[in-house]
């Protein structure tokens, strides 16, 4: 790892200021992506601004159906929140299958979505739940937030402080995990609103990162059942091919995961 300077932020304002003052600084949340990347010398921030002690960025608040999750809330906190499980168990289930227990004790929802790894789990939930990403300066709809592989709408120095969403009537997430890394080779999050609106978001498979599958959404809006997906085609030409799975295999996985998710919701 290259040399760096560590700073511990005490508030949102403090974090943004520390980052502004740094030459080429980075926010450090759980470090479960950033520190391995720095160890490989693929990242070399001059300064790290630690967010773990910013109390206003931690915790889960459920008011009726409105959910607010602080950006520095860990995967294990999301996985084990009874309050959250009462309104949206799907997101707890998703968090409980990220990496392993040690990763879940440190890794955070804000870090995961800011990183926007094409195989990460949370981006699919944000898109399917039509979540709002709250930053130190504005609110961004999930649909506008994820802009490509490891790319987001965040500006230089912009800090994700929380995410909010309205709990859906039904939702579920299913992933086919890479047997070695546990990242999604294909993960599908489905959500259905009280008014019948359906969203289907796919992670792990798209060559441009997480995406919504509109044909599946249409099919499920008229008939909320796994069978409704039988006639929908998943176009392999927009999907990733790598040593783990080629695009046609992933296309099939996407459909299988979507069916399983609808069955589980």
């Amino acid at each position: 790892m290259y040399e760096t300077h560590y700073h511990r932020a005490s508030s949102i304002q403090d974090a943004v200021k520390l980052k502004q003052a740094a030459e080429e600084g980075k926010y450090l949340a759980g470090g479960m992506t950033l520190i391995p990347t720095m160890k490989q010398r693929l990242a070399a921030p001059t300064d790290l601004v630690d967010l773990r002690h910013v109390a206003e960025m931690r915790g889960i608040k459920v008011t009726g159906k409105t959910v607010r999750i602080g950006a520095a809330t860990t995967h294990s906190e999301v996985a084990s929140s009874a309050e959250l499980a009462a309104v949206c168990p799907a997101i707890c289930g998703l968090a409980s299958h990220i990496g392993d227990p040690h990763v879940r004790h440190m890794g955070t929802i804000g870090g995961s979505i800011a990183n926007n790894d094409p195989a990460a789990d949370y981006p699919s939930a944000m898109l399917a739940l039509d979540a709002t990403i709250v930053t130190d300066r504005r609110e961004i709809a999930a649909g506008d937030f994820f802009t490509g592989l490891f790319e987001t709408a965040l500006e230089d120095g912009e800090l994700v402080t929380a995410i909010t969403f309205e709990a859906p009537a039904k939702a579920a997430y299913q992933k086919f995990a890479n047997p070695a890394s546990r990242y999604a080779m294909a993960g599908v999050f489905v959500a259905r609103r009280d008014n019948g609106d359906v969203r289907v978001a796919v992670t792990g498979a798209g060559s441009n990162g997480v995406f919504r599958h509109r044909d599946m959404e249409a099919a499920l809006s008229s008939n909320w059942s796994p069978d409704a997906l039988a006639s929908v085609t998943v176009d392999a030409s927009d999907l990733l091919s790598d040593i783990h799975a080629d695009a046609t295999y992933r296309a099939n996985l996407v459909k299988v995961m979507a069916k399983r998710a609808v069955a589980a919701a």
Binding site: Y6, R8, L28, G31, M32, I35, P36, K39, L48, D50, R52, S76, D100, P101, H102, V103, H105, M106
Partner: peptide, 22 residues
């Protein structure tokens, strides 16, 4: 690999992926 697991404030963490400063 998890060979480096210690407890930090009562929770298991990978000490190879955590800074001493943290």
């Amino acid at each position: 690999c998890g060979a480096c697991v210690v407890h930090m404030d009562g929770m298991s963490v990978k000490s190879c992926s955590t800074l001493a400063a943290q």
